[in-house]
């Protein structure tokens, strides 16, 4: 029996992939992500990390792009290309970690709010709505101001402020699934909470959660860059946001140092766009509402 089930799942995965691959935007996004991830992983292997150390620079500050420094140098004379390359790592790590935290909270709260009903649901929903309305950046700023600076803080600040959208989405989808007669059939067969959630709700909700995850990564990366830009990031590490923070603090605009401004921002745009394109393509493949009911 399981052999057949696995065969079917493989076939379904292949069909999903074909449908995904037929969308140019999604494919472009996926390739972009693959390239960026490979670059981020390879950074310590192909570049020399000592170039990040301010005390060991040899070039002059604010040097425009040249053959030796393809993207010029920053206010300390460090290579902007090297900085941007290394910044990829922190931006990606923070974005992914914050997303995992956020999606986890959102999924659990969303399913619980829809499934159990009664006062549990009412309290959870009220809680979600409250946080949904709060401007998440303001909350994240507050959290990262009062907690000690560091990667953990920034992940926490983004993670615990961005879950309500996921919770709402998951709740809506869970409610939609639970209104379907097959849930009633499962109950009539004798299935309890565990059975209904595990066998029917989760499998139906997970594709949507997956789509939502790719879109959440995109906004988490923007949030990371914003917090770091405001000077709330980890001061000991290079990220795209902290580079832009430095650019702003040291007057890159008045220096007309476009080479220091453009690359980190372009990094954010590329990664966010790649995740968004993937997410939207996945959404059209996996979201039954967009595809039309069978």
């Amino acid at each position: 029996m399981t052999a057949i089930a696995w065969q079917r799942r493989r076939a379904a995965a292949r069909a999903t992939w074909r449908e995904f691959a037929s969308q140019r935007g999604g494919l472009v996004g996926l390739i972009g992500l693959a390239v960026i991830t490979v670059l981020a992983v390879l950074a310590p292997l192909v570049t020399d990390a000592s170039g990040l150390d301010v005390t060991r620079v040899t070039a002059r500050p604010w040097e425009p792009p040249s053959a030796s420094h393809w993207l010029g140098t920053d206010h300390n004379g460090r290579s902007v290309l090297l900085l941007t390359w290394w910044g990829t790592r922190i931006s990606l790590v923070v974005g992914l970690a914050a997303t995992v935290l956020s999606v986890l909270i959102g999924t659990v709260v969303g399913i619980a709010a829809a499934h159990f009903g009664g006062w549990v649901s009412a309290v959870l929903m009220r809680f979600t709505d409250f946080f949904l309305v709060l401007p998440s950046l303001v909350l994240a700023i507050a959290l990262s101001t009062v907690l000690p600076r560091g990667l953990g803080t920034i992940v926490l600040a983004i993670g615990v402020t961005s879950w309500p959208a996921t919770a709402r989405l998951v709740r809506a989808q869970t409610l939609a699934v639970e209104a379907r007669p097959f849930i009633e059939r499962a109950r009539a067969l004798g299935g309890g909470h565990g059975h209904v959630i595990g066998r029917h709700v989760l499998p139906a909700v997970l594709p949507l959660v997956f789509v939502n995850t790719t879109l959440t990564v995109a906004s988490a990366i923007v949030a990371e860059s914003t917090l770091s830009f405001l000077g709330l990031g980890d001061p000991t590490r290079v990220s795209w946001g902290s580079l832009l923070h430095a650019a702003n603090m040291h007057g890159a605009v008045s220096q007309r140092a476009w080479w220091f401004l453009v690359p980190p921002g372009l990094g954010v745009v590329c990664v966010v766009l790649a995740f968004t394109l993937c997410g939207r393509a996945l959404e059209t493949v996996l979201n039954p509402r967009l595809k039309g009911e069978r």
């Binding site: 832009l244 966010v272 968004t276």
Partner: peptide
Amino acid sequence: ALAQWAMPTFWLGMLLSL
């Protein structure tokens, strides 16, 4: 719209002013 949505606000501001 997608490209603009992906842009950090402050970065766009700095670019415009540059």
